[in-house]
Design a protein around this nucleic acid. Sequence first.
RNA 1: GGAGGGGUGCCCGAGUGGUUAAAGGGAGCAGACUGUAAAUCUGCCGGCGAAUGCCUACAGAGGUUCGAAUCCUCUUCCCUCCA
Length: 411
Amino acid sequence: MEKDFKRQIEIIESGTEDVLTKEELESRVKKAIIENKPLKVKLGLDPTAPDIHLGHAVVLNKLRQFQELGHKAILIIGDYTSRIGDPSGRSTLRPKLSEDVIEKNSKTYMEQAFKILIPEKTEVVKNSNWLHHLKFEDILNLTSRFTVARMLEREDFKKRYKSNTPIAIMEFLYPIMQAYDSVAVKADVELGGTDQKFNLLMGRELQKELGQEPQIAITMPILVGTDGVEKMSKSLGNYIGVYEPPGEIFGKIMSIPDNIIIDYFRLLTTLDYKDIEAMNDDMEKGVLNPSIAKRRLAKIIIERLYSKEEAIKAEEEFDLIFKKKEAPEKVEEYVIKQSDTPGKKIGIVELLYNSGLVSSKGEARRLIVQGGIKVDDKKVSDPDGKFNLDDLNNKILKRGKRFFRKIIVKE
RNA sequence: GGAGGGGUGCCCGAGUGGUUAAAGGGAGCAGACUGUAAAUCUGCCGGCGAAUGCCUACAGAGGUUCGAAUCCUCUUCCCUCCA
């Protein structure tokens, strides 16, 4: 356990959106240090989508910081709650998930979460453990403690109510269930995104009602996606998954707009904030090229998720493809059998289509006309062009800047 | 239970009988530019075909018509209001 009280508070509060309340946090941390008793820091994850992306990583990062300070992480898999689906920020009812989908998602979720968390310092529990056993009577008891008015204070519910968009009664139960999770694990702190504030506060209330000390609610800012506008989410396709190969992560980070680089540093790295501010200044003054900052960011993130070597390799590969415009080391192979190819000749359109580089022959034709197809670094301009198989062996077929196939000719 | 509105391409959304493979936007892809897979600009953006062409497509099924996303009938799903 980190004994330096000030340092603890500084690290815990860095990058947060809100800490409710700071006073409570301070006294709880102080007590934890004196009694050498780690705080229980709760984070609930709903395995609604099977993959974790950098948006989730923001909160996981914070949890990791807690672990590094010597506290205990309690990761709650919302296998039961995700049957309802969190209505937070939603404008419509979420579709219900089946049990085996949830089961499967949970597994991959955990694997990915441990790329960021320290496994030995993490306790993982499913909330079906306790929610499943509640009787209707218990639920009545819980629901009696909250009012409809209280629920409608929530912006998303309020909007839906006002605009006559339906709200399932079941959806009111979600925050209560999440609150009950906090009671069940006796959480000292709960983490979440800004959109979780209401739910976190419900936890505090219910804990108080049931005679526990209320948890401290810490919210983290929402990470914008690679488009620089919308919240990072899988369904919008603007996400960077923690499971993606290093090269892909590198490329995606290079593609984020310049104005969100600093936010990414703040939320996804543990760099000193002075260092980050300095970068910000330099970029504004034009001393630092944003692409350099992005390279640094990409490497830090990949190093966290994989290793230093992978980070360096990813950068090298990026330069190879985009600066030198060459093919990467590993290129997917496409094998052509001579016996399947009468006349030992193949048209470029067929070649592109068969190799899976394009999804239709029309697309192949278009790309050729637009100058997006190269064979062995030579532009192909005739859509009707044909190649001798003998000339194609080991040649690189290239579509645009990023898609390659190595052609292997076999008997 | 009653009354009404709606379901269009990956997404949003226009289109109320022919000129509609269907406006516009977003996403995506390609090209130019760039120390960037950023920004910007240009082009493409259902499938097959060398092609004047053919096929598939506007919730589903059927019908009217020379011709239907557009009109009619039934089915289905969603939404609103009244109770």
